[in-house]
């Protein structure tokens, strides 16, 4: 390794710190807001550091079970978890065999199918929302988990398929032919060989899918209208939409809403480690 000069080091670390600052500042400000009192947040000039630290906002959201605030937040949390996890699971169940097929099996029509899938992913949600809304309405699915899960699957399946396909492409074809010779069928190949080898990619796809479903606002806003189905982004928006916006409360809800995906990312990062391919072919 070549030694970096002092100025180079400064530049590298300076840029990294700047990036870190840009990424962390909003989160930090959100956290500060969440532990400040309403008075500190509304004074002019702005009080950058709260005069007293209080976790009342968090308590309001999670422990005060009789209040409508806690009820709507907790049910939104539950709805979000159900919708994001179900949509991700279903999407992966469809995307894994689809990606395998697109990556491994012959046929020129498959390629155009992938293109169509990507094209639907590119379509703006506004273009789709009206027909989807009337369909969901006709099926009686508005304001249910199923409606959101179905719509999110429509977004996630093309995305995860494409992500997984490009990862499956990197696995040598011999690792399909060898199990075929050993007596495996295609599903067994996927289960015993492709998935364990592509574990990092599957982990990444799952993480991205969960995040996309977790953060989705547009469809969730339109297709849900009460605590039975409202997800976190919509619930948080509701806190801001009242006559008095409680910024502290909104910030606390925002912080809490980031915890599940962040912890999930933390646990999945182990499986995101690559380098599993070494030693399989040649060497």
């Amino acid at each position: 390794m070549t030694r970096r000069s002092k100025s180079e080091s400064c530049l590298v670390y300076g840029s990294a710190s700047l990036l870190g600052l840009v990424l962390l500042c909003p989160v930090l400000w959100l956290f500060i807001m969440s532990i400040s009192s309403t008075r500190d947040l509304t004074t002019l000039p702005l009080q950058w550091f709260p005069s007293e630290i209080s976790f009342d906002n968090y308590a309001k959201l999670v422990s005060d079970l009789d209040s409508s605030t806690a009820e709507s937040f907790l049910s939104a949390l539950r709805n979000s978890l159900i919708v994001a996890i179900s949509a991700t699971t279903l999407s992966l169940l469809a995307a894994i065999p689809a990606a395998y097929s697109l990556s491994r099996l012959p046929g020129s029509r498959r390629k155009s199918l992938l293109f169509v899938a990507i094209a639907t992913f590119m379509m703006p949600p506004v273009a789709l929302v009206l027909p989807l809304y009337s369909t969901m309405g006709a099926l009686g699915l508005l304001n249910t988990h199923i409606a959101l899960i179905a719509v999110y699957c429509g977004i996630l399946v093309p995305f995860t398929t494409w992500l997984l396909k490009s990862n499956f492409d990197a696995i040598p074809i011999e690792l399909d032919e060898a199990p075929l010779i050993d007596g495996a069928n295609r599903l067994q190949i996927i289960w015993h060989i492709t998935l364990p080898i592509a574990k990092p990619a599957v982990g990444a796809a799952a993480l991205m899918a969960i995040l996309m479903a977790w953060d989705e606002f547009f469809y969730a806003l339109l297709f849900t209208n009460d605590i039975r189905a409202k997800t976190l982004p919509v619930a948080i928006a509701d806190f801001a939409a009242g006559r008095v916006a409680d910024y502290g409360l909104i910030s606390a809800a925002g912080i809490l809403a980031t915890l599940p995906p962040v912890s999930m990312a933390y646990f999945l990062q182990k499986s995101l480690v690559s380098g599993l391919m070494s030693g399989s072919v040649k060497g």
């Binding site: 040598p172 060898a178 199990p179 050993d182 364990p196 080898i197 574990k199 399989s280 072919v281």
Partner: peptide, 19 residues
């Protein structure tokens, strides 16, 4: 089908399962 032929094969690249 391949699996019904009862034929084994050794690949040039070995094709061992890395995991």
């Amino acid at each position: 089908p391949v699996s019904d032929r009862d034929i084994a094969m050794v690949f040039q690249s070995y094709a061992l399962y890395p995991h």
